[in-house]
C-alpha cells in the first residue's frame, strides 16, 4: 500500500500532464469552453425550479440555491466515476505499447474534474455574493468535505477503470447505479423533504447524502457535523461524517489494491 502511494507521488508530474491534457480536450483550450460546460447544470436548475415552484407548488425558500449547493459536489462525483470507466481504453495506444503507471489515468480523470469543481465553486460563491449571504467561518469546513469526496472518488475511479477494462459492460452498470443514487441522494431536493425523522437519519448514512447535504448544511445553515459544534436543528450528524470518512478510505484502499492487481494484464486486453 505504501509502495503504491510512493509510486503515485513519484509520478506526480505525469499526473499533472495527463490532467492538463484531459482539460484541454474538454475546454478546447478556451475559457469559453468552461462556460459552455455550465449549460447542463444551469438548465437542470432552471427546469427543476420551474417544476418545484410552479408545477408542484412547493414553497421551499431559495430552492435553486439549495439545489446548486449540492449539485456542485454531485457533479464532481458523477463525472469522475463515469468518466474514469473508459479511460484506459481511451489511452490504449499508450498502455499497449509503452510502460506507464496506468493508475495515473483514472486519477487524471478525477484531477480534471476536480479543476472543474474548483471553478464551479467560484461560481457558487459568486451566487452567494449576489444573493447576498455573508461569508461565514464554517465555510472552511467545505475543504474537509471536498477532501473526503476526492479520496472516495479516486478509489472508485481506479476500481471502475480496472473493472471496465476487463469487463466492458461496467460503464453501463455504473451509469445506471449513479442515476439511481442521484434520486436517493439529497441533490435536487434538501434532506428535510424526507419527512420521517428516523428514516432521514438512516438515509443520511449514504456517503453521497452526507457529502451533498453536508455542503448544503454548511452553506445554507452554517452547520458543521462535528461534536461540540452541533446546532439545535442539525441534519448531518458526526456519525454520518465518520462512516463516510471510513467509507472513503475503504474505497481508496480497495481501488488501489484492485487496480494494482489487474493492471499487468491491461496491455494484453485493451
Amino acid at each position: 500500500m505504501l509502495e503504491a502511494l510512493k509510486e503515485i507521488w513519484s509520478y506526480r508530474q505525469l499526473l499533472y500532464d495527463l490532467t492538463a491534457r484531459e482539460l484541454k480536450v474538454r475546454y478546447r483550450r478556451s475559457f469559453l469552453g468552461f462556460l459552455w460546460s455550465l449549460i447542463t447544470p444551469l438548465y437542470q436548475i432552471v427546469i427543476m425550479t420551474v417544476v418545484v415552484k410552479y408545477i408542484w407548488g412547493h414553497t421551499e425558500p431559495n430552492y435553486s440555491v439549495k439545489f446548486l449547493c449540492a449539485l456542485v459536489p454531485w457533479a464532481l462525483f458523477q463525472t469522475s466515476v463515469t468518466g474514469a470507466c473508459p479511460i484506459i481504453l481511451k489511452y490504449r495506444q499508450m498502455v499497449k505499447r509503452i510502460w506507464m503507471p496506468s493508475q495515473m489515468l483514472p486519477l487524471a480523470a478525477v484531477g480534471s474534474n476536480l479543476i472543474h469543481f474548483l471553478l464551479s465553486m467560484v461560481i457558487l460563491f459568486a451566487v452567494f455574493v449576489a444573493v447576498p449571504v455573508a461569508f461565514h467561518e464554517t465555510f472552511f469546513f467545505l475543504i474537509v468535505l471536498s477532501a473526503i469526496l476526492v479520496v472516495m472518488i479516486s478509489g472508485l475511479a481506479m476500481l471502475f477503470a480496472a473493472l471496465h477494462t476487463a469487463y466492458q459492460d461496467t460503464e453501463y452498470i455504473i451509469t445506471n447505479l449513479v442515476q439511481a443514487f442521484y434520486f436517493l441522494t439529497p441533490v435536487m431536493y434538501p434532506a428535510s423533504w424526507v419527512h420521517n425523522e428516523q428514516w432521514r437519519y438512516l438515509y443520511l448514512f449514504n456517503p453521497m447524502a452526507t457529502i451533498c447535504e453536508g455542503f448544503r448544511g454548511v452553506l445554507m445553515r452554517h452547520e458543521v457535523p462535528l461534536p461540540g459544534l452541533l446546532r439545535p436543528e442539525q441534519v448531518v450528524m458526526p456519525e454520518h461524517l465518520l462512516t463516510t470518512t471510513i467509507f472513503a478510505l475503504l474505497c481508496f484502499g480497495v481501488g488501489l489494491w484492485y487496480f494494482a492487481r489487474q493492471r499487468w494484464q491491461f496491455p494484453e486486453i485493451v
Binding site: 509520478y11 508530474q13 499533472y16 500532464d17 491534457r21 499508450m94 505499447r97 509503452i98 510502460w99
Partner: peptide
Amino acid sequence: LEAGAGFHPDLTGLENIQLTGSLLGM
C-alpha cells in the same frame, strides 16, 4: 516503436516531449 508510440497525435511536439519525460518519472 515504429509509430513513435507514446506520442499522442493531438499534442504538440513540446507537450509530447514533456509527456515522454513524465512517463520516465522526470
